[in-house]
Design a protein around this nucleic acid. Sequence first.
DNA 1: GTCCTTGCAAAACATTTGCAGCACC
DNA 2: GGTGCTGCAAATGTTTTGCAAGGAC
Lengths: 153, 153
Amino acid sequence: MKEIYIETAKEGLQRQGYKLTGPRLAIIRYLAGEKGHPDIRQIFTRIRSEHPGIGIATVYRTVDLLLELGFLRAITIKKNQLRYEVNWPGDHHHHLVCKGCGRVIEFGSCNFQLISKEIEKVTRFRIEEHILEAYGLCHDCLPGKQHYSTEKM
Amino acid sequence: MKEIYIETAKEGLQRQGYKLTGPRLAIIRYLAGEKGHPDIRQIFTRIRSEHPGIGIATVYRTVDLLLELGFLRAITIKKNQLRYEVNWPGDHHHHLVCKGCGRVIEFGSCNFQLISKEIEKVTRFRIEEHILEAYGLCHDCLPGKQHYSTEKM
DNA sequence: GTCCTTGCAAAACATTTGCAGCACC
DNA sequence: GGTGCTGCAAATGTTTTGCAAGGAC
């Protein structure tokens, strides 16, 4: 799965006439193995530890490129913070975000397919993908439980 | 509807011990009448035109406050831009974002309620609200049509 | 060899903070 | 009248840009 993403992204870059450079490959490989939702700074810090000398400008440029080509997407996990996640082919993007501890849980399926045809008919819009974000409280943060965090916000 | 929002927000501020000041009211009134998805700069520019002398720091502080109190929410309409929209009570937040022209269409309902109980059971998560964003092409941007924009991105 | 890409540093832009004076309650 | 809010300006943080050198094809 991870390898497929890396290969697809590499092919995608080349097909569009972009060069396969060290920094770009390092970023793609890191993202392919990242299960969380890193922001720019996290990506930069992580890449730099394995690839010292990389500039943050390159990270910005590469992330923009991957967004443009559709290999990455931006999400708003909390209030006003931008984070990124890998755009796996055919993947859904469904998040449960806990308002208590900020933890993010992914859930696999929704029945959006069932209504998307109806929406397309009414709005004459051709839907290609979607993101569903639900907010609430995880089990540990329900009243009577202590808060703790698995993903730093 | 607009008046209800303004009154609810005013009450909410006071109930939490925040003062009803001129700048805060101006921002709430503007947001209540705004149909689009403004960013900080648009809010600031608009408020300043009717309320010269306001500082941008106040806009940041007020937007943070309204986010905190749940009267406003942040969305990621496109790639990596943060925008804000009014959190109408009981409202759904469903957007169709056109990849061609950037226009944003709201649609009224989804059947998320039907599956949210199932998700809550599996994940032991209590879901309070959700956002659904769908991306695709609007009718005008489907192949064979010309692109144009109704909301500047 | 030709372009594209990179890292660096500076510039531009965005956000936060400290503080004295003002305004709400 | 006390406390919280505001505008300003400075500080800080983030993103973009220009450019010479290096690297992919």
